[in-house]
Every structure is written in structure tokens, then in C-alpha cells.
């Protein structure tokens, strides 16, 4: 819900919009926005829940340092949302705790 965000966009030369989904909800964003910005624009600031305490956490530094903005982007877990630019149709989900590490080499091996 874009209207629920506390963030306001600055006047911006280009008028392009693309659509991504945040937790399944369609959200309009600008090309060049980060996935973390898309989350903030959607009015859903909690990016992840802490793997240690389970508490919700929101993007903080927006420059790749704090790791508070971890998201699951197009199925890839633990991605720093502030370091990834949005793409049309991008599927952005919260990172819930720590992901399970699957062995990619073992996948596809017949049981």
C-alpha cells in the first residue's frame, strides 16, 4: 500500500514506474530504487526478523554495512536489499530468521 508509507519521494526528472511485489502485494517503484527502498515505499519497513531474537528489523544504513535489510529476492535468501536495484516483476519477501542451507550439489541427485 504505497499510501501508507511515511516516506515521500523527491521531485524526480523521469516519470517511469515499474511494478514489483512486496510480500505478494504489487508496489510501484522507480527504476534505480533499491529493493530496500521498495519496502519502505510500500509502507512495510520490517525487512527481516532477527535470526537470534526473532525481533523485526528494518533497513537502517542503506549503504551495505548493517545487514538489517536482509530480504528474500526472487527466491534467493539473505540478500541485502539496499544493495540490489529493483527490476520489473521482482518478487520481494521478508527474510524470516536464518534460512536453511541446502546443498545445491545434492539437488537433482536421485534419492
Amino acid at each position: 500500500m504505497p499510501g501508507a508509507s511515511k516516506f515521500e519521494r523527491l521531485a524526480y526528472a523521469s516519470n517511469d514506474w515499474i511494478q514489483v511485489t512486496v510480500e505478494g502485494q504489487p508496489v510501484q517503484v522507480r527504476p534505480g530504487d533499491s529493493a530496500a527502498a521498495a519496502l519502505l515505499a510500500a509502507g512495510q519497513p520490517a525487512a527481516r526478523t532477527s535470526a537470534v531474537s526473532g525481533d523485526p528489523r528494518a533497513p537502517y544504513c542503506l549503504m551495505g554495512i548493517c545487514f538489517e535489510c536482509l530480504l528474500e529476492i526472487d527466491g534467493v535468501p539473505n540478500v541485502q536489499g539496499c544493495m540490489v536495484q529493483v527490476a520489473d516483476g521482482m518478487n520481494i519477501r521478508r527474510q524470516q530468521g536464518a534460512p536453511v542451507l541446502n546443498d545445491s550439489l545434492a539437488e537433482g541427485v536421485p534419492a
Partner: peptide
Amino acid sequence: FPLLRDLR
């Protein structure tokens, strides 16, 4: 531990 190759 080959599965570590997927870790950042």
C-alpha cells in the same frame, strides 16, 4: 563442506 559454496 561442499554446501558452504552457496554461502555469502
